[in-house]
């Protein structure tokens, strides 16, 4: 039987959730035996080369590109998992949601103490840059998400248990201590 195929991505996240995947430590060598990796920053495959069984999503959507990537994941993965607080509810980046994006840009590029030289008032706007969304959106508001793994980041043990359960079809152990956000 061929191995289940795993893909991962980081949208508007901090990469901490991916670091938590690596925190399964020596089990990463077991994981390599258990699943085949496809598109993922961990392995450097940057485009889907085949349909996948499991997709892990870190981060919510803060720009048009995030949305594009998330939809691409939905299309290519049978099961999608929101990994961590940012994917589940926007997380820290969603703190900008109550504030007009214009104010955020002005603070960063016009008002700070080290943009004194920006006398012509440049704010990045090149066509090469993706569109910022009005808000940061949790993944399940953009596509259907099958499972949520809480935590910021979710603990390595929780990620490991969940992957093993998804791969083997066995019921997942969920002791009280692992079901918390931080």
């Amino acid at each position: 039987m061929s191995k289940p195929i795993l893909a991962t991505t980081s949208l508007a996240g901090c990469f901490g959730c991916h670091m938590s995947i690596l925190d399964i430590d020596e089990r990463i060598l077991e994981l390599i035996e258990l699943v085949e990796f496809n598109k993922s920053p961990i392995d450097d495959i940057k485009k889907f080369t085949k349909k996948c069984d499991i997709g892990l999503i870190e981060g919510g959507c803060c720009n048009s590109e995030n949305v594009h990537v998330l939809k691409d994941f939905r299309e290519n993965c049978k099961i999608l998992v929101s990994l961590g607080e940012c994917a589940i509810m926007g997380g820290l980046p969603a703190m900008r949601n109550g504030i007009p994006i214009k104010e955020c840009l002005e603070e960063a590029y016009l008002n700070g103490p080290t943009v004194v030289g920006n006398t012509t008032g440049i704010i990045p706007n090149d066509p090469e840059l993706p569109m910022l969304l009005d808000k940061v959106y949790p993944c399940h508001e953009v596509v259907k998400i099958d499972y949520h793994l809480p935590g910021c980041p979710p603990r390595a043990d929780l990620i490991w248990e969940a992957l093993v359960a998804l791969v083997t079809g066995d019921e997942m152990k969920m002791p009280y201590e692992v079901i918390k956000f931080d």
Binding site: A12, C62, N63, E65, P93, M95, R96, I99, I101, E103, C104, L105, E106, E107, A108, G112, P124, D126, E128, L129, P130, L132
Partner: peptide, 14 residues
């Protein structure tokens, strides 16, 4: 050009 295409807005929302 090496373009960096992400923006967070931390300076403001904090």
């Amino acid at each position: 050009r090496l373009h960096i295409v992400e923006f967070r807005g931390f300076e403001r929302f904090v």
